[in-house]
Amino acid sequence: MNATPASMGWTWLKAGFSMLRRQPAGLSTLFFGYMLLTTLLSILPLLGQIAQIVLMPVFAVGFMSAARQIEAGLPVVPAMLGAGFRKPKFGRLCRLGAVNLGAFFLVVAIALLFADFDMLSKMTPADLQANPQLMQDAGLLPGLLVGCAIYIPVLFVISFAAPIVFWNEMATGKALFYSFFAIKRAAGAFFVFAVCLCVIAFVTMNLMRMVFGGGTLGFAMLQVVSVLLYGCAHCALYVAYAHIFGAPAAEPAPLAKP
């Protein structure tokens, strides 16, 4: 593993956004393909939301594969979004997703420890999404802050384990082990990465809300921005992976055809 100063966290993030500038059409196709798939999954009550969480590492590998192509000077094609669905790696990535699901449920459980259940029983998820102040009134905010402080490092370990499973041919448990110690060794860089990404997301989301309001258009724009940030963040994670473990070879020619 290569040595990693804290300043590399910002360098990784800049490289992730730079990839969007280098191939805006190719990456935008992946972003909106991902957005379409997650929208279709969300049609299924509860099961669709669970599937999105479990498939997170699978889709993450798709964005990282695209980042590898851009770094190699090759075109990004829509088929890359499905890179993580190949067997036998798909099963290993889904096991990472199961760990992600467990961590997510832990966050929910912690949030509910502080909640006012009488007030929550009178609200719907749509109410909470439309008016974030209700989350504070219902006592969810302290629990969510504690839960997120736990979940974000776990999410980094899971996300960083995905390319290790995919390119280093490791089993899920071993990939999580290597991911944990790689992040621990480069903790300063990943802390800078996480803080900068959160600041960019916070500022961008609030700007979108100010410009487009909290209605249907505003919500749609927030979704678009969320997907763009999600994709660029995973491109940046690929850059981090390549810095720490070394860049994998580019995709075979059939996948790289425009």
Rank of each mutant, 00 (worst) to 15 (best):
M1F: 10
N2W: 06
T4K: 05
A6N: 05
S7T: 07
S7N: 03
M8R: 10
W12F: 14
A15L: 13
F17W: 10
L20N: 12
A25H: 13
A25F: 12
A25G: 14
T29Q: 11
Y34M: 05
Y34Q: 08
M35L: 09
L40A: 06
I43A: 15
I50S: 07
A51L: 04
V54L: 14
L55F: 03
P57I: 03
V58S: 01
F59C: 00
F59G: 00
V61P: 00
G62R: 03
F63K: 01
S65P: 14
A66V: 02
R68W: 05
R68Q: 07
A72I: 07
A72R: 08
L74I: 09
P75M: 14
V77I: 10
P78F: 05
A79F: 15
A79D: 15
M80V: 03
A83Y: 01
K87H: 14
F90R: 05
F90V: 00
R92H: 05
G97Q: 01
G97T: 00
A98F: 13
A103H: 03
A109S: 14
A109P: 14
A111G: 13
L112V: 08
L113Y: 08
F114L: 13
D116S: 08
D118M: 13
D118Q: 15
L120M: 13
Q129I: 10
N131A: 13
P132K: 06
Q133C: 11
Q133V: 09
D137R: 11
A138D: 13
L141T: 11
P142A: 13
L144R: 07
L144I: 08
V146L: 08
A149T: 04
A149F: 01
Y151M: 10
P153V: 00
V154N: 04
F160S: 00
A161S: 04
M170Y: 00
A171Y: 09
A175D: 00
A182Y: 00
A182T: 04
K184P: 15
A186K: 07
F190A: 02
V192N: 04
A194D: 12
A194Q: 08
C198P: 15
V199L: 14
A201I: 12
L222C: 15
S226P: 07
S226D: 05
G231A: 07
A242I: 04
A242V: 03
H243S: 13
A247G: 10
P248M: 05
A253R: 11
P254M: 13
K257Q: 15
